[in-house]
Write a protein that binds this DNA or RNA. Sequence first.
DNA 1: CATATCTTGTTAATTTTATCACTAACCCCC
DNA 2: GGGGGTTAGTGATAAAATTAACAAGATATG
Lengths: 212, 212
Amino acid sequence: MKQDGKISSAVIRRLPRYLRALEDLENSDTERISSGELSKLIGYTASQIRQDLNHFGGFGQQGYGYNVKDLKAEIGKILGLNTKYRMVIVGSGRLGQAINSFISSYSANFCVTSLFDVKEDLIGKEKHGVLIRSVDTLTEYLKENPTDIGVITVTKENAQSACDKLVAGGVRGIWNFAPIDLECTADIPMENVHLSDNLHSLVYYINHPEQI
Amino acid sequence: MKQDGKISSAVIRRLPRYLRALEDLENSDTERISSGELSKLIGYTASQIRQDLNHFGGFGQQGYGYNVKDLKAEIGKILGLNTKYRMVIVGSGRLGQAINSFISSYSANFCVTSLFDVKEDLIGKEKHGVLIRSVDTLTEYLKENPTDIGVITVTKENAQSACDKLVAGGVRGIWNFAPIDLECTADIPMENVHLSDNLHSLVYYINHPEQI
DNA sequence: CATATCTTGTTAATTTTATCACTAACCCCC
DNA sequence: GGGGGTTAGTGATAAAATTAACAAGATATG
């Protein structure tokens, strides 16, 4: 793997898309793929695909293209999908449950070890086989059970406090679904999914179809 | 509103972020804000904020800044939040329910009129006050009940068929949560929320903290 | 009411990102 | 195993996005 110097986040955000396409190709028993064909499949230019992949090393071969299986493995390795990730979800409402079931069905790489909530009557119950604990015990839990990723699916009002507890507990990254930009003291990555922002962009394009 | 020529999607994707900040400012009874202060608040440079807003018109005033209430109203208008949007959700699983409750609690601008599902035993039931109908009746329903936005929260396998039915029913835009890139014959906007892609990017940055 | 201070709108410069164009390597078939 | 056809890697070029710079207008103050 080359990977010298900083890689632009635009490139990084395309890697999962490549991975997804390669999974589909593997499932349809395609052995090799050229940048040109991949381009038709996912819409990025062939040139961009070649340049993106070349940031990390020459995975292809002239006259042949890329071996689907190998490339998929390489991209997986670049992203870090060769190890497992332990997660906790703060907020066991509908969204928390949706993420929980998504995670467990999606990939063996990710495992939700516990849910957390403020609501007294939920604590002690299980959702999708995962125990709900009190958010008051979150930091303590994390210290005893080292965890890679904290997911925040609580209300806007409770999100910053959830974030603080996750950081105090030493998570390595945060996946935030609350519609707020969290302050994070530790220098760890934070991935935001702002559903309302997303919906609002969609509405803009609905009203300005000529802008598509 | 100026808005001549195509506005880059990078700009459009920032508008909801501005709106969110302005809502917070309004809630804390702030009357005016300068691009400099807004910059501190949301992290974009002051220069970028001024340039973004200027695509749509001069909403500010030298020596004063921007009036919070007015600017919020203007951005709302640009996005199209001065009218209401009728939505249906295809897929009444956990994610569909999460989106449903999010929508109804989030804003009076959006209203989910019906859920749709393939599972026989769910049809006829209600979730969060919204009836679940058979996905077989989706297109028919849409023709009788003009709908602006179709939300897809079904499995990867059922997503394309859901998309086709939504398009046939004449929705104006699609919000897709299935981990697949849908083919859409009609020329309508599609907003994708690929949770797995998002999670994979996060994992990359967890493993390459120096790249943040 | 004059003036020092802000702050926008706007143009220009810079940086980043994406595309093009070409070379050299490799495959595949005859 | 030789040659035509493919295709990756890559440096140059073009396009897009961001940031910087500054003139002009407005505010606030004494």
